[in-house]
Each structure stands twice: as C-alpha cells, then as structure tokens.
Nucleic acid binder design. Structure first.
Lengths: 157, 157
DNA sequence: TATTGTTATACTCTATAACTATA
DNA sequence: TATAGTTATAGAGTATAACAATA
C-alpha cells in the first residue's frame, strides 16, 4: 500500500496543481502495477488505441495519444520486439505503416486491463462510487472527450 | 490559444489516464504561462508553500511538495540566484536551513498567482463554475488534502 | 513541395549514491 | 547511529533536426 502523500492547503487550493500531482501519482502507480507484465504506461496507451482501431497508422496514433512521432517509433519497436504488435504495409499510402495487435498482444492487453481496474479501486478509494462516476464525467468533459470522430476500426483492416 | 487535444474513447474511459494526461497538459500550459516571469512550475510550488509557512526547512518542503531533497537544493539555489528566496540559519537544528521569501519574491509570487488564476479560467473553460467547484472538491478529497496538520508559519520565524 | 516514418541527438526532469556537518 | 543538506552522476522521458521514401 502506498501512502497517498498529503498535499498542503497552499497547493491544494489550485485545481491545476491537484490535477498535475494526482495525475503524476496515478501514472507512477500504474507503471509499477503493470511492470510485472513487462509493460509500460505508454505501451498500454498505444495498445488500447490500436485495439479500438486495428490498422491505425503511427501518425494517427501520435494524434490520439499525444506521443511524439519519433517516440512512437520507439514504442512500436518495443511492442514488436515483445511480440505484442506488428507493423504491416498500409495499402492506401505506401509511406505509412498499419499497426495491429498480435494474439499475444490481445491476451496481454486483457490482463493489463484487469490490473488497471484493480488499481482504479485503490486510486479512487477515497471517493464513493457515485463520486468516482461524477469525477470521471467532469474529467471527460474537460478533455472534450467522448467519441473522437471516428472511433472504431480503420478502413482497409 | 492551445487546442485541448482530443482524447479518444479508448483512453478516456480510464479515469486514471484522464487524470494523468490532463495533469500533464495543465503543467505544461502553466509552465509556458509563467515562463514570461522567468518562473518554473516547481519554483512556484515551492514558493507557494514557503509563503504559507515562512521559515520552513528544505526537508519539510520535500515532504509537502514531493520534490526530492537533492532536487530541492537546485530549486532553492535557483530561487536564491533570482533573489526570490533566501536560506537562513535554522536555530532549532544547525543542520537545517530556514527558507524565506524576499520582498521581491513576495511581489513576483503575487503576479504569478494572477497568471495562474487567468490560466485556470482557460484550462477549465469547458466546465461551468459549479462544475469547476465540484471537480475541485473531488480532487481535494482524492488527495486527502485540506489543512495538512500544521499549515501556517513555522516556529522561530 | 509536403508528409510518413526513421535516426541520431540534445535537453529536461528526476532519482541514486556518496559525502559533510550536525544531532 | 541517524538525519539535513549537498554534490556528482546516471537514468528516464521527451523533444528537435535532418534524412529517405513516397505523395
């Protein structure tokens, strides 16, 4: 169990600060939780998007995850090396690469999703189920999220 | 104006992810906003705590901000070099150093607080005033924040 | 001429370990 | 023996610039 660190009022009064510090904490704890599966938060993010849009290109992955194109190369390299994903030719544009999860990748993603769900329970333990839902809604709204024009598999898949 | 980046449903469904990504975004935007004053987010955090607890030691600052003690040295060095804060002997324990803001530091902090307030408006623009307040409460609760045992000036000040 | 992916590189931020002076 | 601060160093993580293939 990790102590959630006390945040002094002088800083807690800034919602942006809370967002930043709690976000960093969430990322770190998630990273530790999935390290056992040999996975990294960035890899999880990419895999989750690929799972929802099989055949997506690296450029599109960059736009959706916010990960820099040059860093994206490294992430996909790692996933390929671990046998979790693979690059395939992208028929519509021969410059681009089409990314797919392998079967092993699908299974691993499933396990990591379970770990993520367990961690969520811990992370938001101070909140009631209702409060968690409310917080989630507010964060979604802030992110302008919810069905980012074209969720679902890509053409060609 | 910075586009708030669209977050796909495949990731937005994880509240921890939203927290992490929105937090990172908040930090980056805040950093850019205060760079004009020659300030860094870490420095602001430390200064805000020092302002609320004049005479605080570096060790205590580390506990309250989560910044590593060795990094704290660098932050205070920067603040001293910029004439924003200063180290003084700490009578109760000669190993420790007592940190205080200079007048220039107080004034600068005041200006940066204004910038922070403006940025907050932008950052949470997608939310109504009520929703912002609700989000702030939920984040506070999550952080176990609110009057961290001993807010206020330190003895000896 | 612009874009996708790639490579090499630099830069920022943070963490680790060892040292000093006090306790 | 343990702790506060310091220093030097190493490691993540990320961003920047230049290049090849293709559009």
């Amino acid at each position: 169990m990790m102590e959630p660190e006390k945040i002094p009022e002088a800083l807690a009064k800034y919602p942006g600060y809370l967002l930043s510090r709690l976000g960093e904490q969430a990322r770190k704890r998630f990273g530790k939780a999935i390290a056992a599966q040999g996975m990294h938060p960035r890899q999880f993010g990419v895999m989750a998007v690929v799972a929802s849009r099989p055949g997506i290109t690296q450029q599109q992955l960059h736009e959706l995850t916010g990960i820099d194109p040059s860093s994206m190369v490294a992430v996909i390299d790692e996933l390929e090396a671990a046998g979790l994903a693979e690059r395939r030719p992208y028929p519509l544009d021969r410059r681009a690469r089409s990314i797919h999860l392998t079967e092993h990748g699908e299974r691993t993603l499933g396990r990591v999703r379970e770990v993520a769900a367990e961690l969520q329970q811990e992370l938001f333990a101070a909140l009631s189920a209702e409060e968690r839902e409310r917080l989630h809604e507010l964060l979604r709204k802030m992110a302008g999220a919810g069905a980012a024009a074209g969720d679902g598999p890509c053409k060609q898949a």
